[in-house]
Nucleic acid binder design. Sequence first.
DNA 1: CGTCTGTTTGATAGCGCTCAAAGGGGGTGG
DNA 2: CCACCCCCTTTGAGCGCTATCAAACAGACG
Lengths: 252, 252
Amino acid sequence: MSDPRQTPAAMPLSEAQPRPTERDDAPCAACPVRDRSVCGALDDEEMRYLNDIMETMSMVAGDHLVDEGEPAKHVFNITEGTLKIFRLMPDGRRQVMGFLFPGDFLGLVARETYLSSAEAVTDVTLCRFRREQIEDLEDRLPKLESRLLRMARNELAEGHDQMLLLGRKTAMERLASFLLNLQARAERRGDPVNPVHVPMSREDIGDYLGLTTETVSRTMTRLKQSGLIAQEPDRRILIRKRDELVQVAEGY
Amino acid sequence: MSDPRQTPAAMPLSEAQPRPTERDDAPCAACPVRDRSVCGALDDEEMRYLNDIMETMSMVAGDHLVDEGEPAKHVFNITEGTLKIFRLMPDGRRQVMGFLFPGDFLGLVARETYLSSAEAVTDVTLCRFRREQIEDLEDRLPKLESRLLRMARNELAEGHDQMLLLGRKTAMERLASFLLNLQARAERRGDPVNPVHVPMSREDIGDYLGLTTETVSRTMTRLKQSGLIAQEPDRRILIRKRDELVQVAEGY
DNA sequence: CGTCTGTTTGATAGCGCTCAAAGGGGGTGG
DNA sequence: CCACCCCCTTTGAGCGCTATCAAACAGACG
Protein backbone atom coordinates (compact mmCIF):
# COMPACT_ATOMS: atom_id res chain seq x y z
CA MET A 1 0.00 0.00 0.00
CA SER A 2 0.99 3.64 -0.61
CA ASP A 3 4.00 4.98 -2.46
CA PRO A 4 7.08 2.81 -1.96
CA ARG A 5 9.56 5.71 -2.17
CA GLN A 6 13.19 5.01 -1.37
CA THR A 7 12.62 2.26 1.17
CA PRO A 8 14.91 -0.78 1.25
CA ALA A 9 13.80 -3.79 -0.76
CA ALA A 10 11.24 -6.26 0.49
CA MET A 11 11.62 -7.51 4.03
CA PRO A 12 9.34 -9.95 5.84
CA LEU A 13 6.15 -8.14 6.79
CA SER A 14 5.79 -9.61 10.25
CA GLU A 15 8.02 -9.13 13.27
CA ALA A 16 10.56 -7.44 11.07
CA GLN A 17 13.03 -5.21 12.88
CA PRO A 18 13.23 -1.81 11.27
CA ARG A 19 16.82 -1.03 10.33
CA PRO A 20 18.88 2.12 10.53
CA THR A 21 19.27 4.00 7.27
CA GLU A 22 22.74 4.63 5.92
CA ARG A 23 23.39 8.35 5.74
CA ASP A 24 22.61 10.12 8.97
CA ASP A 25 25.45 12.59 9.53
CA ALA A 26 23.14 15.58 10.00
CA PRO A 27 19.60 14.55 9.24
CA CYS A 28 18.00 16.98 11.73
CA ALA A 29 19.13 19.93 9.64
CA ALA A 30 17.06 18.66 6.75
CA CYS A 31 14.20 17.32 8.85
CA PRO A 32 10.84 18.12 7.31
CA VAL A 33 9.03 18.11 10.64
CA ARG A 34 11.59 19.74 12.88
CA ASP A 35 9.58 22.72 14.06
CA ARG A 36 6.35 20.81 14.55
CA SER A 37 7.81 18.00 16.65
CA VAL A 38 9.50 17.76 20.05
CA CYS A 39 12.77 18.92 18.58
CA GLY A 40 11.27 22.31 17.83
CA ALA A 41 11.82 23.22 21.47
CA LEU A 42 15.59 23.16 21.11
CA ASP A 43 18.24 25.62 19.97
CA ASP A 44 21.07 24.77 17.56
CA GLU A 45 23.49 23.39 20.10
CA GLU A 46 20.89 21.27 21.83
CA MET A 47 19.82 20.09 18.41
CA ARG A 48 23.34 18.93 17.61
CA TYR A 49 23.34 16.87 20.77
CA LEU A 50 19.99 15.41 19.83
CA ASN A 51 21.43 14.59 16.44
CA ASP A 52 24.19 12.58 18.10
CA ILE A 53 21.92 10.38 20.19
CA MET A 54 19.44 9.81 17.38
CA GLU A 55 19.14 7.17 14.69
CA THR A 56 16.96 7.50 11.60
CA MET A 57 15.12 4.40 10.44
CA SER A 58 12.63 3.26 7.87
CA MET A 59 9.99 0.58 7.79
CA VAL A 60 7.61 -0.82 5.21
CA ALA A 61 3.85 -1.09 5.67
CA GLY A 62 3.01 -3.86 8.11
CA ASP A 63 6.28 -3.80 10.06
CA HIS A 64 6.04 -3.87 13.84
CA LEU A 65 7.84 -1.01 15.51
CA VAL A 66 7.22 -2.01 19.13
CA ASP A 67 5.15 -4.68 20.83
CA GLU A 68 2.97 -4.33 23.89
CA GLY A 69 4.74 -5.67 26.97
CA GLU A 70 8.31 -5.40 25.66
CA PRO A 71 10.90 -3.34 27.56
CA ALA A 72 10.50 0.27 26.46
CA LYS A 73 14.02 0.95 25.23
CA HIS A 74 13.21 3.67 22.73
CA VAL A 75 11.00 6.61 21.93
CA PHE A 76 10.33 7.78 18.38
CA ASN A 77 9.57 10.76 16.25
CA ILE A 78 7.73 10.12 12.98
CA THR A 79 9.11 11.92 9.94
CA GLU A 80 7.16 10.26 7.11
CA GLY A 81 4.21 7.91 6.78
CA THR A 82 1.55 6.64 9.16
CA LEU A 83 1.74 4.42 12.24
CA LYS A 84 -1.04 2.87 14.27
CA ILE A 85 -0.91 2.36 18.04
CA PHE A 86 -3.10 -0.44 19.36
CA ARG A 87 -3.77 -2.88 22.14
CA LEU A 88 -5.03 -6.45 21.88
CA MET A 89 -7.32 -8.50 24.09
CA PRO A 90 -6.65 -12.22 24.67
CA ASP A 91 -9.29 -13.28 22.14
CA GLY A 92 -7.95 -10.98 19.44
CA ARG A 93 -10.24 -7.99 19.86
CA ARG A 94 -8.20 -4.95 18.98
CA GLN A 95 -8.47 -1.30 19.90
CA VAL A 96 -6.48 1.26 17.93
CA MET A 97 -5.56 4.07 20.34
CA GLY A 98 -4.50 6.40 17.58
CA PHE A 99 -2.70 7.02 14.33
CA LEU A 100 0.62 8.86 14.20
CA PHE A 101 1.65 11.12 11.32
CA PRO A 102 4.81 13.07 10.51
CA GLY A 103 5.77 15.29 13.43
CA ASP A 104 4.02 13.07 16.00
CA PHE A 105 5.88 11.63 18.92
CA LEU A 106 5.67 8.06 20.18
CA GLY A 107 6.69 7.33 23.73
CA LEU A 108 4.80 9.67 26.03
CA VAL A 109 2.74 6.88 27.51
CA ALA A 110 5.45 4.27 27.89
CA ARG A 111 6.60 3.07 31.29
CA GLU A 112 9.26 0.40 31.74
CA THR A 113 7.45 -1.63 29.12
CA TYR A 114 5.40 -0.50 26.14
CA LEU A 115 1.71 -0.43 26.97
CA SER A 116 0.64 -0.70 23.35
CA SER A 117 1.97 -2.05 20.08
CA ALA A 118 2.87 0.13 17.12
CA GLU A 119 2.77 -0.97 13.48
CA ALA A 120 3.41 0.78 10.19
CA VAL A 121 0.23 1.53 8.22
CA THR A 122 2.21 2.82 5.23
CA ASP A 123 5.94 2.90 4.67
CA VAL A 124 7.38 4.98 7.48
CA THR A 125 10.57 6.83 8.32
CA LEU A 126 11.30 7.98 11.83
CA CYS A 127 13.97 8.97 14.35
CA ARG A 128 14.70 6.74 17.28
CA PHE A 129 16.11 7.74 20.68
CA ARG A 130 17.11 5.63 23.65
CA ARG A 131 14.57 6.35 26.32
CA GLU A 132 17.06 6.87 29.14
CA GLN A 133 18.96 9.41 27.05
CA ILE A 134 15.81 11.40 26.44
CA GLU A 135 14.97 11.20 30.11
CA ASP A 136 18.40 12.57 31.02
CA LEU A 137 17.81 15.33 28.54
CA GLU A 138 14.43 16.10 30.08
CA ASP A 139 16.11 16.69 33.42
CA ARG A 140 18.67 19.01 31.89
CA LEU A 141 16.42 20.88 29.48
CA PRO A 142 13.25 22.33 31.00
CA LYS A 143 12.32 23.56 27.53
CA LEU A 144 12.11 19.96 26.38
CA GLU A 145 10.04 19.00 29.37
CA SER A 146 7.63 21.88 28.76
CA ARG A 147 7.25 20.75 25.21
CA LEU A 148 6.54 17.19 26.24
CA LEU A 149 4.03 18.38 28.82
CA ARG A 150 2.27 20.46 26.22
CA MET A 151 2.16 17.50 23.87
CA ALA A 152 0.84 15.30 26.65
CA ARG A 153 -1.90 17.83 27.38
CA ASN A 154 -2.93 17.83 23.75
CA GLU A 155 -3.03 14.06 23.70
CA LEU A 156 -5.15 14.06 26.84
CA ALA A 157 -7.66 16.39 25.20
CA GLU A 158 -7.77 14.20 22.10
CA GLY A 159 -8.20 11.18 24.33
CA HIS A 160 -11.27 12.78 25.85
CA ASP A 161 -12.71 13.46 22.41
CA GLN A 162 -12.19 9.81 21.60
CA MET A 163 -13.88 8.66 24.82
CA LEU A 164 -16.96 10.70 23.96
CA LEU A 165 -16.89 9.19 20.50
CA LEU A 166 -16.50 5.60 21.71
CA GLY A 167 -18.90 5.89 24.60
CA ARG A 168 -21.75 7.85 23.10
CA LYS A 169 -21.65 8.41 19.36
CA THR A 170 -23.41 6.44 16.64
CA ALA A 171 -21.49 4.77 13.82
CA MET A 172 -22.33 7.65 11.51
CA GLU A 173 -21.20 10.27 14.02
CA ARG A 174 -17.99 8.35 14.65
CA LEU A 175 -17.05 8.19 11.01
CA ALA A 176 -17.87 11.84 10.42
CA SER A 177 -15.73 12.81 13.43
CA PHE A 178 -12.92 10.61 12.17
CA LEU A 179 -12.79 12.17 8.71
CA LEU A 180 -12.88 15.69 10.11
CA ASN A 181 -10.15 14.79 12.58
CA LEU A 182 -7.94 13.47 9.78
CA GLN A 183 -8.56 16.68 7.88
CA ALA A 184 -7.72 18.90 10.85
CA ARG A 185 -4.48 17.05 11.47
CA ALA A 186 -3.53 17.20 7.79
CA GLU A 187 -4.08 20.94 7.93
CA ARG A 188 -1.78 21.30 10.96
CA ARG A 189 0.92 19.41 9.05
CA GLY A 190 0.39 21.52 5.98
CA ASP A 191 -0.74 18.51 3.95
CA PRO A 192 -3.60 18.60 1.41
CA VAL A 193 -6.91 18.78 3.24
CA ASN A 194 -9.50 18.27 0.53
CA PRO A 195 -9.45 15.63 -0.62
CA VAL A 196 -7.79 14.29 2.50
CA HIS A 197 -5.57 11.21 2.50
CA VAL A 198 -7.01 8.24 4.42
CA PRO A 199 -4.16 5.72 4.38
CA MET A 200 -5.55 3.13 6.78
CA SER A 201 -7.72 0.10 5.99
CA ARG A 202 -11.38 -0.28 6.89
CA GLU A 203 -10.31 -2.71 9.58
CA ASP A 204 -7.94 -0.20 11.16
CA ILE A 205 -10.64 2.47 11.06
CA GLY A 206 -13.10 0.07 12.63
CA ASP A 207 -10.67 -0.86 15.38
CA TYR A 208 -10.11 2.85 16.02
CA LEU A 209 -13.80 3.73 16.12
CA GLY A 210 -15.01 0.68 18.02
CA LEU A 211 -16.82 -0.72 14.96
CA THR A 212 -16.41 -3.60 12.52
CA THR A 213 -15.05 -3.26 9.00
CA GLU A 214 -18.50 -4.00 7.63
CA THR A 215 -20.11 -1.21 9.59
CA VAL A 216 -17.38 1.22 8.54
CA SER A 217 -17.92 0.25 4.92
CA ARG A 218 -21.70 0.52 5.08
CA THR A 219 -21.52 3.86 6.85
CA MET A 220 -19.01 5.19 4.35
CA THR A 221 -21.40 4.16 1.58
CA ARG A 222 -24.24 6.05 3.24
CA LEU A 223 -22.08 9.17 3.57
CA LYS A 224 -21.30 8.96 -0.14
CA GLN A 225 -24.94 8.37 -1.10
CA SER A 226 -26.05 11.40 0.88
CA GLY A 227 -23.45 13.46 -0.96
CA LEU A 228 -21.47 14.57 2.10
CA ILE A 229 -18.28 12.94 0.87
CA ALA A 230 -16.91 11.33 -2.29
CA GLN A 231 -14.25 8.72 -2.87
CA GLU A 232 -11.26 9.84 -4.95
CA PRO A 233 -8.31 7.82 -6.27
CA ASP A 234 -5.37 6.85 -4.01
CA ARG A 235 -7.31 6.43 -0.78
CA ARG A 236 -8.41 10.01 -0.71
CA ILE A 237 -11.79 11.32 0.46
CA LEU A 238 -13.34 14.52 -0.81
CA ILE A 239 -15.41 16.33 1.79
CA ARG A 240 -18.25 17.91 -0.17
CA LYS A 241 -20.41 19.42 2.55
CA ARG A 242 -18.15 20.19 5.44
CA ASP A 243 -20.75 22.04 7.52
CA GLU A 244 -23.20 19.18 7.32
CA LEU A 245 -20.48 16.68 8.15
CA VAL A 246 -19.63 18.73 11.24
CA GLN A 247 -23.29 18.71 12.25
CA VAL A 248 -23.36 14.94 11.93
CA ALA A 249 -20.11 14.53 13.86
CA GLU A 250 -21.30 16.62 16.79
CA GLY A 251 -24.65 14.87 16.96
CA TYR A 252 -27.03 17.70 16.03
CA MET B 1 -25.61 11.68 49.23
CA SER B 2 -22.76 10.37 51.37
CA ASP B 3 -21.72 11.81 54.72
CA PRO B 4 -22.52 15.52 55.01
CA ARG B 5 -19.56 16.28 57.32
CA GLN B 6 -18.81 19.91 58.11
CA THR B 7 -20.03 21.42 54.85
CA PRO B 8 -21.84 24.77 54.84
CA ALA B 9 -25.62 24.62 55.03
CA ALA B 10 -27.79 24.01 51.98
CA MET B 11 -26.98 25.96 48.86
CA PRO B 12 -28.72 25.69 45.49
CA LEU B 13 -27.63 22.47 43.84
CA SER B 14 -27.23 23.89 40.36
CA GLU B 15 -24.72 26.44 39.14
CA ALA B 16 -23.73 27.09 42.73
CA GLN B 17 -20.35 28.71 43.13
CA PRO B 18 -18.29 26.86 45.69
CA ARG B 19 -17.14 29.26 48.39
CA PRO B 20 -13.81 29.65 50.14
CA THR B 21 -13.66 28.14 53.60
CA GLU B 22 -12.83 30.37 56.53
CA ARG B 23 -9.62 29.20 58.15
CA ASP B 24 -6.81 28.71 55.67
CA ASP B 25 -3.70 30.15 57.30
CA ALA B 26 -1.59 27.01 56.79
CA PRO B 27 -3.78 24.25 55.42
CA CYS B 28 -1.02 22.60 53.39
CA ALA B 29 0.81 21.61 56.55
CA ALA B 30 -2.18 19.54 57.60
CA CYS B 31 -3.09 18.39 54.10
CA PRO B 32 -4.04 14.71 54.04
CA VAL B 33 -3.00 14.23 50.42
CA ARG B 34 0.13 16.35 50.27
CA ASP B 35 2.65 13.70 49.30
CA ARG B 36 0.38 12.00 46.78
CA SER B 37 -0.60 15.10 44.86
CA VAL B 38 1.22 17.68 42.76
CA CYS B 39 2.43 19.47 45.87
CA GLY B 40 4.53 16.48 46.86
CA ALA B 41 7.12 17.66 44.35
CA LEU B 42 7.97 20.73 46.38
CA ASP B 43 10.20 21.52 49.34
CA ASP B 44 9.14 23.51 52.39
CA GLU B 45 9.81 26.96 51.02
CA GLU B 46 8.13 26.24 47.70
CA MET B 47 5.23 24.84 49.65
CA ARG B 48 4.87 28.06 51.61
CA TYR B 49 4.61 29.94 48.37
CA LEU B 50 2.02 27.48 47.12
CA ASN B 51 0.12 28.01 50.33
CA ASP B 52 -0.03 31.73 49.63
CA ILE B 53 -1.50 31.45 46.17
CA MET B 54 -4.00 28.75 47.14
CA GLU B 55 -7.56 28.83 48.42
CA THR B 56 -9.32 25.90 50.06
CA MET B 57 -12.97 25.38 49.21
CA SER B 58 -15.81 23.01 49.82
CA MET B 59 -18.81 21.92 47.80
CA VAL B 60 -21.84 19.76 48.41
CA ALA B 61 -22.89 16.85 46.22
CA GLY B 62 -24.29 18.11 42.94
CA ASP B 63 -22.45 21.44 42.85
CA HIS B 64 -20.80 22.41 39.59
CA LEU B 65 -17.12 23.19 39.93
CA VAL B 66 -16.45 24.22 36.35
CA ASP B 67 -18.47 24.19 33.14
CA GLU B 68 -17.35 23.15 29.69
CA GLY B 69 -16.54 26.19 27.57
CA GLU B 70 -15.95 28.66 30.39
CA PRO B 71 -12.63 30.51 30.66
CA ALA B 72 -10.22 28.23 32.50
CA LYS B 73 -9.25 30.52 35.36
CA HIS B 74 -8.35 27.86 37.91
CA VAL B 75 -6.86 24.46 38.47
CA PHE B 76 -7.71 22.28 41.44
CA ASN B 77 -6.42 19.67 43.77
CA ILE B 78 -8.97 17.41 45.44
CA THR B 79 -8.50 16.82 49.16
CA GLU B 80 -11.76 15.06 50.09
CA GLY B 81 -14.70 13.51 48.27
CA THR B 82 -15.36 12.57 44.64
CA LEU B 83 -15.75 14.64 41.48
CA LYS B 84 -16.88 13.61 38.03
CA ILE B 85 -15.52 15.10 34.83
CA PHE B 86 -17.86 14.92 31.86
CA ARG B 87 -18.79 16.28 28.50
CA LEU B 88 -22.27 16.73 27.02
CA MET B 89 -23.60 16.40 23.47
CA PRO B 90 -26.26 18.79 22.16
CA ASP B 91 -29.07 16.26 22.70
CA GLY B 92 -28.02 15.52 26.26
CA ARG B 93 -25.93 12.41 25.76
CA ARG B 94 -23.21 12.50 28.40
CA GLN B 95 -19.78 10.94 28.63
CA VAL B 96 -18.01 10.88 31.97
CA MET B 97 -14.27 11.15 31.29
CA GLY B 98 -13.30 10.15 34.79
CA PHE B 99 -13.80 10.40 38.51
CA LEU B 100 -11.40 12.34 40.72
CA PHE B 101 -10.58 11.32 44.28
CA PRO B 102 -8.45 12.89 47.03
CA GLY B 103 -4.95 13.59 45.75
CA ASP B 104 -6.09 13.88 42.13
CA PHE B 105 -5.45 17.00 40.11
CA LEU B 106 -7.91 18.79 37.86
CA GLY B 107 -6.57 21.07 35.17
CA LEU B 108 -4.06 19.13 33.12
CA VAL B 109 -6.28 19.10 30.07
CA ALA B 110 -7.55 22.67 30.20
CA ARG B 111 -6.64 25.23 27.57
CA GLU B 112 -7.98 28.75 27.59
CA THR B 113 -11.41 27.34 28.29
CA TYR B 114 -12.40 24.19 30.15
CA LEU B 115 -12.97 21.31 27.77
CA SER B 116 -15.18 19.39 30.20
CA SER B 117 -17.47 20.11 33.10
CA ALA B 118 -16.78 18.99 36.65
CA GLU B 119 -19.42 18.28 39.26
CA ALA B 120 -19.31 17.04 42.83
CA VAL B 121 -20.48 13.43 43.21
CA THR B 122 -20.24 13.61 47.00
CA ASP B 123 -19.43 16.55 49.23
CA VAL B 124 -15.96 17.68 48.22
CA THR B 125 -13.14 19.80 49.62
CA LEU B 126 -10.33 21.00 47.40
CA CYS B 127 -7.60 23.58 46.86
CA ARG B 128 -7.91 26.08 44.08
CA PHE B 129 -5.10 27.88 42.22
CA ARG B 130 -5.23 30.57 39.59
CA ARG B 131 -4.06 28.94 36.41
CA GLU B 132 -1.61 31.67 35.39
CA GLN B 133 0.06 31.51 38.78
CA ILE B 134 0.58 27.79 38.45
CA GLU B 135 1.90 28.29 34.93
CA ASP B 136 4.42 30.84 36.20
CA LEU B 137 5.41 28.36 38.84
CA GLU B 138 5.86 25.64 36.21
CA ASP B 139 8.37 27.82 34.43
CA ARG B 140 10.31 28.50 37.62
CA LEU B 141 10.15 25.02 39.14
CA PRO B 142 11.19 22.19 36.86
CA LYS B 143 10.36 19.80 39.67
CA LEU B 144 6.74 20.85 39.43
CA GLU B 145 6.77 20.46 35.71
CA SER B 146 8.25 16.96 35.96
CA ARG B 147 5.55 16.04 38.39
CA LEU B 148 2.84 17.33 36.09
CA LEU B 149 4.37 15.48 33.17
CA ARG B 150 4.43 12.28 35.15
CA MET B 151 0.80 12.77 36.12
CA ALA B 152 -0.12 13.50 32.51
CA ARG B 153 1.61 10.30 31.41
CA ASN B 154 -0.37 8.31 33.93
CA GLU B 155 -3.58 9.89 32.77
CA LEU B 156 -2.70 9.07 29.18
CA ALA B 157 -2.19 5.43 30.09
CA GLU B 158 -5.51 5.35 31.94
CA GLY B 159 -7.12 7.01 28.96
CA HIS B 160 -5.91 4.19 26.75
CA ASP B 161 -7.33 1.61 29.13
CA GLN B 162 -10.64 3.42 28.93
CA MET B 163 -10.57 3.51 25.13
CA LEU B 164 -10.09 -0.25 25.03
CA LEU B 165 -12.96 -0.59 27.47
CA LEU B 166 -15.32 1.70 25.53
CA GLY B 167 -14.36 0.45 22.11
CA ARG B 168 -14.17 -3.28 22.63
CA LYS B 169 -15.42 -4.60 25.95
CA THR B 170 -18.86 -6.04 26.75
CA ALA B 171 -21.05 -4.56 29.48
CA MET B 172 -19.94 -7.29 31.90
CA GLU B 173 -16.26 -6.70 31.14
CA ARG B 174 -16.70 -2.96 31.52
CA LEU B 175 -18.29 -3.22 34.93
CA ALA B 176 -15.70 -5.71 36.19
CA SER B 177 -12.91 -3.41 34.97
CA PHE B 178 -14.56 -0.46 36.65
CA LEU B 179 -14.85 -2.10 40.05
CA LEU B 180 -11.25 -3.30 39.94
CA ASN B 181 -10.12 0.14 38.90
CA LEU B 182 -11.93 1.73 41.83
CA GLN B 183 -10.29 -0.79 44.10
CA ALA B 184 -6.81 -0.16 42.73
CA ARG B 185 -7.18 3.58 43.15
CA ALA B 186 -8.51 3.19 46.69
CA GLU B 187 -5.46 1.11 47.47
CA ARG B 188 -3.12 3.82 46.16
CA ARG B 189 -4.85 6.35 48.39
CA GLY B 190 -4.64 4.03 51.37
CA ASP B 191 -8.44 3.76 51.58
CA PRO B 192 -10.32 0.54 52.39
CA VAL B 193 -10.23 -1.77 49.38
CA ASN B 194 -12.64 -4.56 50.26
CA PRO B 195 -15.38 -3.69 50.42
CA VAL B 196 -14.59 -0.74 48.18
CA HIS B 197 -16.58 2.48 48.27
CA VAL B 198 -18.58 3.19 45.08
CA PRO B 199 -19.93 6.69 45.67
CA MET B 200 -21.38 7.42 42.25
CA SER B 201 -24.87 6.68 40.93
CA ARG B 202 -25.79 4.05 38.37
CA GLU B 203 -26.30 6.83 35.90
CA ASP B 204 -22.80 8.21 36.46
CA ILE B 205 -21.34 4.72 36.13
CA GLY B 206 -23.30 4.18 32.93
CA ASP B 207 -22.13 7.49 31.50
CA TYR B 208 -18.56 6.53 32.36
CA LEU B 209 -18.78 3.06 30.85
CA GLY B 210 -20.78 3.97 27.76
CA LEU B 211 -23.88 2.12 29.00
CA THR B 212 -27.35 2.98 30.33
CA THR B 213 -28.31 2.88 34.00
CA GLU B 214 -30.51 -0.12 33.30
CA THR B 215 -27.67 -2.09 31.78
CA VAL B 216 -25.38 -1.18 34.67
CA SER B 217 -28.02 -2.33 37.11
CA ARG B 218 -28.75 -5.59 35.31
CA THR B 219 -25.07 -6.36 34.96
CA MET B 220 -24.42 -5.61 38.61
CA THR B 221 -27.24 -8.02 39.48
CA ARG B 222 -25.65 -10.72 37.37
CA LEU B 223 -22.28 -10.19 39.08
CA LYS B 224 -23.98 -10.56 42.44
CA GLN B 225 -25.92 -13.66 41.37
CA SER B 226 -22.76 -15.33 40.15
CA GLY B 227 -21.14 -14.65 43.52
CA LEU B 228 -18.26 -12.51 42.24
CA ILE B 229 -19.35 -9.48 44.25
CA ALA B 230 -21.79 -8.58 47.00
CA GLN B 231 -23.55 -5.38 47.91
CA GLU B 232 -22.76 -3.99 51.37
CA PRO B 233 -24.28 -1.01 53.21
CA ASP B 234 -23.24 2.59 52.40
CA ARG B 235 -22.61 2.12 48.68
CA ARG B 236 -19.83 -0.35 49.22
CA ILE B 237 -19.12 -3.42 47.11
CA LEU B 238 -17.45 -6.54 48.42
CA ILE B 239 -15.29 -8.28 45.87
CA ARG B 240 -15.64 -11.98 46.67
CA LYS B 241 -13.69 -13.63 43.86
CA ARG B 242 -11.08 -11.16 42.75
CA ASP B 243 -9.27 -13.54 40.39
CA GLU B 244 -12.43 -14.40 38.52
CA LEU B 245 -13.41 -10.75 38.34
CA VAL B 246 -10.01 -9.99 36.80
CA GLN B 247 -10.54 -12.74 34.24
CA VAL B 248 -13.89 -11.24 33.32
CA ALA B 249 -12.44 -7.72 33.12
CA GLU B 250 -9.64 -8.75 30.79
CA GLY B 251 -11.92 -10.73 28.53
CA TYR B 252 -10.64 -14.28 29.06
C1' DC C 1 -46.59 8.21 56.78
C1' DG C 2 -46.11 10.09 52.19
C1' DT C 3 -43.21 11.79 48.63
C1' DC C 4 -39.30 11.89 45.84
C1' DT C 5 -35.47 10.10 43.59
C1' DG C 6 -32.55 6.34 42.38
C1' DT C 7 -32.54 1.38 41.48
C1' DT C 8 -34.26 -2.87 39.87
C1' DT C 9 -36.89 -5.68 36.85
C1' DG C 10 -39.64 -6.65 32.66
C1' DA C 11 -40.99 -6.44 27.66
C1' DT C 12 -39.75 -5.02 23.20
C1' DA C 13 -37.03 -2.85 19.60
C1' DG C 14 -33.05 -1.47 16.97
C1' DC C 15 -28.20 -0.60 15.88
C1' DG C 16 -24.35 -2.70 14.86
C1' DC C 17 -22.26 -7.54 14.80
C1' DT C 18 -21.77 -12.04 12.65
C1' DC C 19 -21.67 -15.03 8.96
C1' DA C 20 -21.54 -15.35 4.04
C1' DA C 21 -20.63 -14.24 -0.62
C1' DA C 22 -19.87 -11.17 -4.41
C1' DG C 23 -17.13 -7.29 -6.26
C1' DG C 24 -12.95 -4.70 -7.26
C1' DG C 25 -8.18 -3.03 -7.48
C1' DG C 26 -3.28 -3.53 -7.32
C1' DG C 27 0.69 -6.30 -7.74
C1' DT C 28 2.98 -10.23 -9.76
C1' DG C 29 4.25 -13.50 -13.07
C1' DG C 30 3.80 -15.36 -17.49
C1' DC D 1 1.00 -6.17 -21.80
C1' DC D 2 -2.33 -8.88 -20.02
C1' DA D 3 -4.35 -12.18 -16.94
C1' DC D 4 -4.62 -14.14 -12.75
C1' DC D 5 -4.76 -14.04 -7.89
C1' DC D 6 -5.00 -12.34 -3.49
C1' DC D 7 -6.70 -9.32 -0.31
C1' DC D 8 -9.49 -5.59 0.81
C1' DT D 9 -13.99 -3.74 0.33
C1' DT D 10 -18.77 -3.90 -0.40
C1' DT D 11 -23.28 -5.82 0.01
C1' DG D 12 -26.75 -9.01 1.93
C1' DA D 13 -29.38 -11.76 5.49
C1' DG D 14 -30.22 -12.66 10.16
C1' DC D 15 -29.17 -12.31 15.02
C1' DG D 16 -27.91 -10.62 19.65
C1' DC D 17 -26.50 -7.27 22.95
C1' DT D 18 -27.72 -3.28 24.74
C1' DA D 19 -31.04 0.65 24.43
C1' DT D 20 -35.62 2.10 25.07
C1' DC D 21 -39.95 2.37 27.24
C1' DA D 22 -42.50 1.26 31.27
C1' DA D 23 -43.57 0.01 35.86
C1' DA D 24 -42.60 -1.82 40.40
C1' DC D 25 -39.55 -1.27 44.28
C1' DA D 26 -36.60 0.75 47.92
C1' DG D 27 -34.25 3.93 50.62
C1' DA D 28 -33.83 8.81 52.32
C1' DC D 29 -35.95 12.61 54.10
C1' DG D 30 -39.38 15.73 55.70
